[in-house]
Design a protein around this nucleic acid. Structure first.
Lengths: 170, 170
DNA sequence: TTGGAATGTCAACAAGGCTGACATAAACTT
DNA sequence: AAGTTTATGTCAGCCTTGTTGACATTCCAA
């Protein structure tokens, strides 16, 4: 599907790195890497009869304690109905607490319980372990490039969300 | 792997880039970027009442025409029942053809039809468009880093699969 | 000829997306 | 104050796509 030019690397990557074949490799790299990225937490979650959706909720509540359901909705990009199901099970199981807002009593503020923090840490430790290993193998410059490309690949709206998190969180 | 000095502190990122906060940012970057990565094809697929599973099948059959069901199973990492359902609908709709093997008549070799190629191109054009734009924005060195980190993040088994594809396909 | 491998099918089930309908609280209009 | 609108959260039901288990078929290979 691509020209005969892309035969071997290092010919001057500056000119070649946007060929269809390079892009295809990027696409497949994303696919396989994302599978690796989620594999370790998935195994842990399965032991608790939870799924990735629970992990995501725990992760972002942990990162922004007291966040509202609607805020979480925007971050996760799912419907409130879908999130609600996950949230309900986490609350029932005592991993998350939901408090009615004091200023605006329509809002629910979400917090991890001690148990919730425990599971969140178990999950993120596993995920960080793999990422740390990948970062170490690749080296700091590769990590910077990785972050740059990922950021450019996000939807602009989520890029803002992401940047705000980064700025507040560091 | 020399030290990158982009940060405000003089400690040198070489020492800092593996903090939990850096790793957390990497984790969230993966999450948001993957969503962007799949957003465009998802919109097209919805028009055809297909899902990501169909896209993945089309993608890998296109990349390796004549591949067998079992090979596809290994690449995609799903059960044969799950793949079979997707494959059946693609065959019924005339996007994929399944030919009994000549050497080994147990095996089915899969090919895209003209229609199948059409849809696959529509999908991958959309996906490449975003990736090309991200690559352009980030620049060649960032792209190299991106690829390096992603490769390190894969499961070893899939890393081999990925490398073989890259070597054969370029 | 028998065992195992590759494929396909049927059934049942679960996770986690979705939409629609609706309840409640707060804010806004009149 | 009353009624309307908006924001938020909940409940019910559907769909895709993953899972397991059971089982049939076909064919290669020892």
């Amino acid at each position: 599907m691509e020209s005969a030019l892309s035969s071997h690397h290092d010919k001057g990557q500056a000119l070649l790195y946007l060929t269809d074949e390079q892009l295809r490799q990027g696409i497949e790299a994303m696919f396989f890497a994302y599978r690796g990225f989620t594999a370790d937490p998935d195994r842990i979650l399965a032991q608790f009869s939870y799924g990735r959706a629970h992990h995501r909720a725990l992760h972002f509540i942990n990162g922004a304690p007291g966040t509202t359901v609607n805020n979480l909705l925007n971050i996760l990009g799912v419907t409130k109905q879908s999130l609600n199901r996950v949230l309900r099970s986490l609350i029932e199981d005592g991993l998350v607490e939901s408090h009615v807002g004091k200023k605006d009593r329509r809002k629910r503020h979400l917090f991890l319980t001690v148990e919730g923090v425990k599971l969140e840490q178990k999950l993120s430790n596993a995920q960080r372990l793999r990422m740390r290993s990948a970062f170490r193998t690749a080296g700091p410059e590769a990590v910077a490039g990785f972050r740059t490309v990922l950021e450019a690949m996000m939807d602009p709206k989520m890029r803002n969300t992401y940047s705000n998190m980064r700025d507040n969180g560091s």
